[in-house]
Amino acid sequence: MKFFFEDRPKFTMNPLILILSIIQAVMLLQMYIFGSGQSYISDITQFFQTGMPNPSACGVLFTVWTIVLALYWAKIVKSPKLSTIMAIIFVYFGTMITIGFPDFGLNWPTSVHILEAYIGYGYIYESIIKKYKLW
């Protein structure tokens, strides 16, 4: 099976956005772990039961994925398949939360999901544009 994303997207995954994403994701994560850990486990469980993203699940997964994407961009991790899967998951989370949350994902801590949507969709668009020379 051929994946789209064998070239590292340069525009969507530029260092500035990746650093910003990692900072925001880590802040989100630490807030859940050290701030109000009560709902942390139940939110993660709920995500896997219902499929509906929620802040705790997003905090953990977004942090891990963003760091892996950064490593991929820096050529430390060399797996286009892994980064493709992560981009698709970013699209899923970004879409669900921006549509489903009352604030369109604009207020902290849900503002992290605008970045998810940006990275996820941007990654896919950039790869398709470069591969197929669209437009």
Binding site: F11, T12, Y118, Y121, G122, Y125, E126, I129
Partner: peptide
């Protein structure tokens, strides 16, 4: 390409 990506996003 950059402009296309911005417009699409």
């Amino acid at each position: 390409n950059n402009i296309k990506i911005i417009l699409l996003i």
